[in-house]
C-alpha cells in the first residue's frame, strides 16, 4: 500500500522552546487519522511543517514519496490544508478565493471555474459565490476553507480543527462530507478538540503531547484500553439517591437518569440482574459519548494502565478538551 505521509524524527525548536522533539509516524493512503493533543502539544507545528508554513529544525517529511527538502513543490501539490484560523482575504468574493487558489497550483481558469462550482455547490456555498468573505457566517467560512483546500484535488487533506465553533447540525454534515471524500480515496488527517469527532470519524488516533507522540494506535484498540465504560440509563421511576449495586458504581445525573460505571469484562446481564433486584426499571440505555476524552486525559496525565508513558501532567487537559483553544 502507498504511504501518504512519512515523518521521521521531526524537530522544531523555537527560541527557547522545543515544540517537536523528534516525532515519527506515517500515514497510509486512504487512512483517516486523528492527530490529538492539548494546546501547545505540537499538532499545528507538525501540520505547518508538512504544508510549508513552518520551517523545521530537524528530521524529514515526505508526502507520497516526495521529500519536502528535495521536492517541496511536488509534495505541496499532494496536500490540501484547512487551517485552524480563517486565512482568506476578507474583501474577496467567495468564488474568487477558490479560483485564485487553483491558479496558485497552476490550474487553468476553465478547469478552476468548474471545480470551484462543484465544491462550492457541494458545500452549500454556491448561492454565496458573489458575497465578500467577511459577510459569511463562521460555519460558511469553515466550509469555504474546505472548498479552497480541495480545488486542486489533493490526495492528502489536512484539517486543523475544522469544526471549531460550528453548530451540531453543520458539524454532522461536515463529518458526512469528510467520510465521503475519504471513501473516494482522499487520505485525511484531522486535528480536533471534539474527541467525539475523532472517535466517530477516525480509524486511527495519534496523540501528541509536549512535542512527543504518546500514543499511536487504531481507535478501537485505544478504546479497548478503557478499564471502565460508562452507561447512561433512563429509568422509569425517579430516585432520590443512587442505588447501591454490588460491583458497579452508580451516580444520579438526574432523578430519572442513572450513570453506571461498568468495569471492562463484566457482563451487562449482571448489571441488569442487579438493577432488577433493586426494582429499577430501565426504559433506555446509551453509551456515554466522548469515551476517547477519558483516554485522552489519562494519556496526557500518564495514568492509563498499559498506555505509553506520557510526559508530566499538563495544566488543564479537561478544560482544553471542553473549551477548545482560547
Amino acid at each position: 500500500m502507498t504511504i501518504a505521509l512519512t515523518i521521521n524524527n521531526l524537530e522544531k525548536r523555537y527560541a527557547g522552546a522545543q515544540a517537536l522533539k523528534g516525532i515519527s509516524f506515517s500515514v497510509q493512503q486512504g487512512e483517516f487519522l486523528a492527530l490529538l493533543g492539548p494546546n501547545g502539544a505540537g499538532k499545528s507545528t507538525t501540520i505547518g511543517i508538512i504544508c510549508g508554513l513552518v520551517n523545521k529544525t530537524g528530521g524529514t517529511v515526505s508526502v507520497f514519496g516526495h521529500d519536502i527538502d528535495r521536492d517541496f513543490p511536488r509534495a505541496k501539490k499532494q496536500v490540501g490544508l484547512v487551517p485552524q484560523e480563517f486565512n482568506f482575504s476578507q474583501f474577496e468574493k467567495v468564488y474568487d478565493v477558490v479560483v485564485t487558489q487553483a491558479g496558485y497550483y497552476g490550474i487553468p481558469a476553465s478547469v478552476a471555474s468548474a471545480r470551484a462550482e462543484h465544491y462550492l455547490k457541494r458545500l452549500g456555498l454556491w448561492e454565496k459565490r458573489d458575497a465578500q468573505t467577511r459577510m459569511l457566517s463562521g460555519g460558511m467560512k469553515r466550509r469555504l476553507m474546505i472548498a479552497r483546500a480541495l480545488v486542486h484535488e489533493p490526495k492528502l487533506l489536512i484539517l486543523d480543527e475544522p469544526t471549531a465553533g460550528v453548530d451540531i447540525e453543520l458539524r454532522r454534515s461536515m463529518w458526512e462530507f469528510l467520510r465521503e471524500i475519504n471513501r473516494a480515496g482522499t487520505t485525511i488527517i484531522l486535528t480536533t478538540h471534539y474527541l467525539e469527532e475523532a472517535e466517530s470519524l477516525c480509524k486511527r488516533v495519534c496523540i501528541i503531547d509536549k512535542g512527543v507522540i504518546v500514543e499511536d494506535t487504531d481507535t478501537r484498540s485505544l478504546l479497548a484500553k478503557l478499564s471502565m465504560e460508562t452507561f447512561l440509563l433512563d429509568i422509569a421511576e425517579p430516585l432520590a439517591a443512587p442505588p447501591a449495586l454490588a460491583g458497579f458504581t452508580c451516580r444520579l445525573a438526574e432523578p430519572a437518569l442513572l450513570e453506571v460505571d461498568v468495569p471492562r469484562g463484566r457482563a451487562m446481564n449482571e448489571l441488569f440482574a442487579a438493577l432488577d433486584a433493586a426494582g429499577i426499571r430501565v426504559t433506555s440505555l446509551r453509551n456515554r459519548a466522548n469515551r476517547l476524552e477519558e483516554l485522552f486525559v489519562s494519556l496526557v496525565q500518564g495514568t492509563l494502565p498499559g498506555g505509553a508513558p506520557a510526559g508530566a501532567p499538563i495544566a488543564a487537559p479537561a478544560a482544553a478538551i471542553a473549551g477548545g483553544k482560547p
Partner: peptide
C-alpha cells in the same frame, strides 16, 4: 494570514 494561501501552494 492569506499569505498562507501562497505558502502552502507550489
Amino acid at each position: 494570514h492569506s499569505i498562507e494561501e501562497l505558502l502552502v501552494s507550489p
